[in-house]
Design a protein around this nucleic acid. Structure first.
Lengths: 315, 315
DNA sequence: TTATCTATGACAGCTTTTGTCATGATTATC
DNA sequence: GATAATCATGACAAAAGCTGTCATAGATAA
């Protein structure tokens, strides 16, 4: 069994170094060069893409795709992983979509038949729904790469009516409600902004612009790091019935503003951006009798004009 | 290498049979009993939980946790799987949460250091946001198990105002917008209904009630299979602006009713249950100027009375 | 008691792996 | 063009590892 063990370690060493010579490994493993050569050939047969060059400064190389040492999972773990990958199936765009697909099929293929049956039975009984959008986000990989490696990108962005060209330095990407977003520093407006990835028409690396050092700013801390950037905010407040509370809970933004009383009713209060006023007006009108807005006057005004408009539409 | 091969096959055979004798395997693999004994000991050392009983009717057994044959992934696949598991982190409740966690840590531990670094760098730069809810759904595993194995459950359910006890037979579970739902046949109302899992207060198996044969009904087909069950249905139709289309796409029920035109606008039309009329009235009012409802008169009447009520509320 | 199991050690024989040596081939560098 | 650093391969004997057989022993259900 010593050989199997050595081959696995060799696999890891080889993956770590990417470039090496036979003599080097022979010494490291305390075996003869001949043995290493035979081992490397075996790894090749396993599918590890080794490539060798003769002559001084020659040696072995591992091309692209590395193969990691095999991992044994328990049945339960395997099922969990399988469904984790499945949970991504509703996303129309993903960075690493292809890899996820090949990983699932590999996974599925390696399962013994009875586990496969179990998976099949569960497959149509658990689902992770995400709104489907036709919006495609083809630049996710580039954006992600730029975020990880601190690169500046030149993008063509279509916001509402106008189309602009700008340079941005991405902080990361995230998906919410079926759309992908990319928070980034925008050199055009000299501020941090969130871009919708499906509206990015082109994205190419821009080597001329010196990147900022944003290594310490990432998705989980950007809000606190960049706080204080808010502009005109208005205070709102609404009383909610029990049903109203339940409907509010469905909205992601509501969490910090929502207070729930022991009897199930509650209230929603906090500061909102002036630019979001219309959004909140329609939201509360949608809640109908389940909410009673008491603040602010501006919000109530928006709601009234909205109601007037609708009353005109459905007389 | 013959031995390594045999051990892997042995691992699978052993997992398949769960109970077996040494003589049996010796014959199957065409080697001596002694060899099998030695092999089994080696599998034990690998961590396979084997247990043996001597005497007639004795033999070997595999306890609980089976270990699947090791799978080798490429680096890209591994990263993809890792993030697939990560994508579940915003869910406050999951069936198989524990297994997913142990799978990630195992995964992470097996990665060579440089891949681990790469993962660390990406970890805070990709995210899958799902609304966080305080709503906990502790019965997911039971519901899922009941759906897979065709069992009837007795549940205590808190709907709106009243609390009811009913027997249901789950079809599956799905999560949407941060909440878990369970479509099921309800013996109490003798109809198919969707339950919100966080409102299920208790769930226990109910052996007395004879389960229906719902094996062919699952999440992906239940809508079409159960069509025609509707009683008083009314035809509705609405024109949607581009924004209206996008908002509708976020709703799971809209898919079969939604038609999207090349320019991004669209329409929503189909049959709805009379009992859902209020729901649709508020829904369309919430869409405001992004939707123009043309049918049916009943729906329009609901909307008008709703608007009148609101206008009275916010004069 | 008997038949059916696992469990272990010893050892010879067989198979696989390894090291050594010899021989070639390629290529960067001086 | 010589030199040194590399990979590449074959042959063969020595070493190591694996396997089968046999002997022995203990447990237990029928």
């Amino acid at each position: 069994m010593a050989k199997t063990q050595r081959l696995l370690e060799l696999l890891m060493t080889v993956n770590r170094k990417r470039k090496f010579t036979v003599g080097e490994l022979a010494q490291e493993f305390g075996v003869s060069q001949r043995t290493i050569l035979r081992d490397l050939q075996e790894l090749s047969e396993w599918g590890v893409p080794l490539y060798s060059e003769v002559g001084p400064h020659g040696g072995y190389r591992v091309l692209k795709e590395r193969i990691l040492p095999p991992i044994a999972f328990s049945e339960e773990e395997a099922v969990a992983i399988f469904f984790a990958i499945q949970s991504l199936r509703h996303y129309s765009a993903l960075p690493f979509a292809a890899e996820a697909a090949s990983a699932t099929s590999k996974f599925y293929a390696y399962m013994p038949p009875d586990v496969r049956e179990r998976i099949d039975e569960m497959r149509h009984r658990v689902d992770f729904v995400t709104p489907k959008r036709q919006a495609d986000s083809p630049h996710l990989s580039i954006l992600l790469d730029a975020a990880v490696n601190q690169k500046v990108l030149a993008i063509a962005y279509e916001s509402r009516e106008k189309q602009t060209n700008r340079r941005i330095q991405p902080i990361g990407i995230y998906t919410q409600n079926g759309l992908w977003y990319c928070p980034a520093y925008c050199f055009y407006t000299s501020s941090y902004r969130v871009f919708r990835c499906d509206r990015i028409q082109t994205a190419v690396e821009c080597a001329e612009t010196e990147p900022l050092d944003l290594r310490d700013i990432h998705l989980d801390n950007r809000e606190s790091r960049l706080a204080g950037e808010e502009k005109n905010s208005i205070a709102i407040r609404a009383e909610l019935t029990r049903v109203g509370v339940q409907k509010c809970e469905a909205e992601r933004w509501s969490a910090p503003m929502l207070t729930i009383r022991p009897d199930g009713t509650g209230s929603l209060s906090g500061q909102i951006a002036e630019s979001d006023r219309d959004f909140f007006a329609t939201f509360f009108i949608g809640l109908g009798r389940e909410a009673t807005v008491t603040h602010s006057p501006e919000l109530l005004a928006s709601m009234r004009s909205y109601l007037a408009e609708l009353s005109g539409k459905y007389p």
